[in-house]
Design a protein around this nucleic acid. Structure first.
Length: 516
RNA sequence: GGCGCUAUCGUCUAGGGGUUAGGACGUGAGAUUCUCAAUCUUAAAACCCGGGUUCGAUUCCCGGUAGCGCUACCA
């Protein structure tokens, strides 16, 4: 498709865009740090809309801030997006009909457009120095409370401009903001209007020749034929300047959809100090990408009816609607994300969960780098047993300590077990069970049941008083999974070539009895 | 300070001129289980305040308040 699109010429392209409904959206991150949930949600909404409308999703890298942009962040960004399952049709890595897709590679385009605006007298050179501007701003603020550029250089005679330019005086380029209200439509917020007096003539080119964000974003969106600008609402106040730019350029203004901010529990904009906020953090915790996209979709959007919560990416594409996006800021609720993740861990295809869980065990040194089929089969059952106990995959190795770690003396010393040891019949149960099961290997679940019945008769205990001491002997705690599933795992694990030896039931009992 | 955006349970939200204001997370209680987790049932929990419009506002309008954003030769 891509080849035919590139090779087929503009006629072909026109046909394809018509077929695809013409919707073109973009996600335009700056490679200045980790991809963070707020931006990921913007990326998700763009992707959902593009896929639903069968339009194009474009990835553009906004790296005009050379000081803060780093190539490694760009690489990471692409990886994080892919991990989330958000793909793109045009971008710096895959190219596309509007290449290049990295702003630092598009400087001549910005330069040419700025020169055109100057020529058409829609923009002008501004010779004011930063110090002057600072002084003016303070004065304006004191006088009428508005820090608006005076427009001093706007009124300069052409001859003087020419003279100062020729003399080599540095100048930035400013756009003329028209003297009428600037209106635009926002899909999330409705009609928005800004009075002209509240919008300053913005600098579009710095005196260094580097273009400014609010300018390049418009040039790029226009050049790339973006039809819907879906982005964070921190850009809402910038939008009138951008609309004025589209108009000055004589280009169609796109539809806007400004998404509300995601806040931390303290109602402050979500940031690093709130803990895990980057996509990489969530991946490392063992949050599934589909759980994260599901949660993010629910932050600021709800299906009509508002009762369903669990949506696969395909279902989101089907149900999503920009018109149903809520304008109010939302607080990020880690607990709900965990709950959603648990649903995916429990209901997801077991092979997928095992595959995602494996690295956590390898990192903990509990499983080999290349587990053979025997080990894999055993591991699959281990995950099956443990999955209902966790919210996120990184909790799995700790939960598995009941399999991998058996420490009889720690079990005896653990204050949580004190109550069980204090029970009158506990020593009898330990002795009776130890005598019978301590020499058997492998212990079959049916045999275990028989033994438990015998112990029950001999000591005349039942329920907790019977089961708790036995469980402590086997896994060091009075609570844990049911024996039917646990015991075979221990017995089989003890014969497997694992980096950490899994003790069999017999070994566990013998160690425990020694300490009695 | 100015400009803009926002306002339903603690949180995410549905709804909308007349509703027992619905769902989910979390919390409490109960059921189940030898136990824990999971699961199921159940309870408590909300329309920011003041005016207007209206027979009737939580819903529409205006104002206030609060929160957030922008107010850079950052993005």
């Amino acid at each position: 498709m891509r080849e035919c699109l590139l090779g087929g010429g503009s006629k072909r392209l026109a046909i394809i865009t018509r077929m695809t409904g013409n919707v073109r959206v973009r996600f335009a991150p700056s490679p200045t740090g980790q991809l963070h949930v707020g931006n990921a949600r913007t990326a998700l909404f763009n992707w959902l809309y593009a896929r639903q409308q069968q339009g194009a999703n474009i990835l553009r890298i906004e790296d005009t801030d050379l000081e803060r942009s780093e190539a490694r962040y760009e690489t990471q960004l692409l990886e994080d997006l892919k991990w989330l399952g958000l793909n793109w049709d045009e971008g710096p890595d895959v190219g596309g009909p509007y290449s290049p897709y990295r702003q630092s590679d598009r400087m001549p385009i910005y330069q040419a457009a700025a020169e055109r605006l100057i020529r058409e007298q829609k923009a002008y050179y501004c010779f004011c120095t930063p110090q002057e501007l600072e002084r003016e701003r303070e004065q304006a603020l004191a006088e009428h409370g508005q820090a608006i550029y005076s427009g001093k250089c706007r009124r300069l005679e052409p001859a003087e401009v020419q003279r100062r330019r020729d003399a080599g005086e540095g100048a930035a380029i400013r756009l003329k903001i028209p003297e009428r209200p600037i209106k635009f439509h926002d899909i999330v917020r409705g009609d928005v209007e800004f009075a002209s007096e509240s919008v300053s003539d913005p600098i579009i080119m710095r005196s260094s020749g580097m273009p400014v964000y609010n300018y390049v974003v418009v040039i790029d969106d226009a050049e790339m034929k973006i039809t819907h600008v879906i982005r964070g609402d921190d850009h809402l106040s910038n939008t009138p300047k951008q609309v004025a730019l589209y108009e000055a350029l004589g280009l169609p203004v796109p539809e806007f959809a400004h998404l509300s901010t995601i806040l931390g529990p303290d109602r402050e904009r979500l940031s690093k100090r709130h803990g895990a906020t980057s996509i990489a953090n969530f991946r490392d915790m063992g949050i599934l990408p589909e759980a994260l996209t599901n949660y993010l979709a629910l932050l600021g959007w709800a299906p009509s009816g508002g009762t369903r919560e669990i949506f696969s990416p395909a279902e989101l594409i089907k149900e999503f609607s920009l018109k149903r996006v809520t304008p109010a800021p939302a607080i990020f609720d880690m607990e709900k994300l965990y709950w959603l993740n648990r649903q995916y861990v429990k209901q997801g295809p077991p092979e997928r969960i095992q595959q995602l869980a494996l690295p956590f065990f390898q990192k903990a040194g509990l499983l080999p780098e290349n587990p053979g089929p025997e080990v894999s089969k055993w591991f699959a059952r281990l995950i099956d047993l443990l999955a209902p106990y966790v919210d996120k995959l990184d909790q799995l190795p700790a939960k598995a300590s009941l399999i991998f770690q058996a420490d009889a003396s720690a079990a005896i010393a653990n204050p949580e077990n004190a109550e069980v040891f204090a029970a009158a019949k506990t020593p009898d149960v330990v002795r009776a069970f130890g005598r019978r099961a301590g020499s058997e290997f492998p212990l079959a679940p049916e045999r275990f049941k028989t033994i438990m019945n015998e112990v029950k008769e001999e000591v005349s205990v039942k329920g907790k008083d019977l089961f708790h001491p036995v469980r402590i002997m086997l896994i060091g705690s009075h609570s844990g999974p049911e024996f039917d599933r646990l015991i075979p795992l221990l017995e089989e694990g003890s014969e497997l070539p694992l980096p950490v030896h899994v003790k069999s039931v017999r070994e566990r009992i013998q160690e425990f009895m020694k300490l009695q």
